[in-house]
Write a protein that binds this DNA or RNA. Structure first.
Lengths: 210, 210
DNA sequence: CTCCAATTGGAATGACCGCTACGGTAAGCT
DNA sequence: AGCTTACCGTAGCGGTCATTCCAATTGGAG
């Protein structure tokens, strides 16, 4: 994020090396978790010495956080929400869920690493975990927004609970695919999920608005 | 052989020490994951030297696997499935889901540790991970059994998908509570979950049986 | 060309890692 | 009593950890 930018051209492999380091780290961290990600292993995988890693990143925590941030950006770029509103509401949220499922299949690193970090609760919380939880909270808010716009009769508490259910279940479906491999049809599961949430919202009692 | 040779009386702190070690390990592994669980940290927490840990357990992998196994037993003991519950099918599976949610609240270590291990995919798979995945597969089969008995008209594929959705979403809801803390009402979420799955099964088309 | 800063290379740091060797101690058994 | 088994305690092994130091390199700017 911090760019010198003062007309200092990329003169050596700087940026490419940075990407190589992040590539190696995302692979190792996805295999072995936070503690299992050793600088030596990253160094071996990206064929750069440890000193280069420490030139590009302050310390291991900073490296992991950078990985989370970059994989989130990658994932965001692969989510294409259809902004034009065609079809019934159910068709629309089903399409949205399908797109999210597809993007998670294409760029799973963000959620995979994030959930791994989130499940740990070490005394000194890694910065990557904080970043993940913030992003996740935003996702929750956006889902709640969609639900509220589609079902304005629902009260706040119902919207909150449905959004929580929608996001949490989606995580679970993703984890299921991470565990059971590519044979799992994540798009189909997400579309089913969208329909269930939609049905639930339809059947929920509309109470007085706050 | 008139010499029973059965359990030699517990003459030292053997069994108690074993439990102390497991208690310490479940705490540390829940905080820091597989690699982050160091023998020295366990040793410090249970106030027993490393050599005692290695007397009771073959190696670190064996220790983690033992923790998974014990926490599974603890969890199983806290699940009380009402086998002949009265009421409608929906009421019955809702009660079942509520019981599972309550047991997961009371004894979360099994699923928490298991999911942490499951998300990692290190080259040499820890035995604890294998154990967890086996138990999880059994859980999936049991859920499929319940669904099939309640909705005999559904074809195999539909039952499989619903069971997958039911288990995976449940994991996600559990993770949500682990992340967001005790304020999350897991029982309510599980009861909602049960109802959604029930509704989905009701609405699913009944195809020809295989 | 020289100078300078961005990178890399390699080696070293002390702390910690999993694990073991081995002696001590106390409670069974005979 | 003496032998055996179960467990605890100390000390340490070889290795890896995150991190740092500092000397090379490299390429753009003057």
């Amino acid at each position: 994020m911090t760019r010198p930018q003062t007309t200092r051209k990329k003169r050596a492999n700087g940026m490419e090396s940075r990407q190589r380091i992040l590539d190696a780290t995302v692979e190792i961290a996805g295999e072995r978790g936070y503690e299992g990600t050793s600088i030596a292993a990253v160094s071996a995988k990206c064929a750069l010495p440890a000193s280069s890693i420490y030139w590009h990143f302050k310390d291991k925590d900073d490296l992991i956080a950078a990985v989370i941030e970059r994989s989130f950006d990658t994932w965001l770029a692969s989510v294409t929400l259809p902004d034009h509103e065609t079809g019934t509401p159910l068709e629309r949220i089903t399409a949205m869920a399908g797109n999210v499922a597809k993007s998670l299949t294409d760029a799973p690193d963000f959620l995979r690493l994030g959930l791994m970090l989130a499940l740990e609760r070490r005394p000194a919380e890694p910065r990557g975990r904080t970043v993940f939880l913030q992003v996740r909270a935003i996702a929750h808010a956006k889902v709640a927004e969609v639900i509220e716009s589609l079902f304005p009769a629902l009260d706040e508490e119902a919207v909150r609970m449905l959004a929580t259910y929608a996001v949490a279940s989606a995580d679970g479906l993703f984890v299921h695919r991470e565990i059971n491999g590519d044979a799992v049809d994540l798009v189909a599961l997400f579309e089913l999920h969208a329909q269930l949430v939609y049905d639930a919202a339809t059947r929920m009692p509309a109470r007085s608005k706050a």
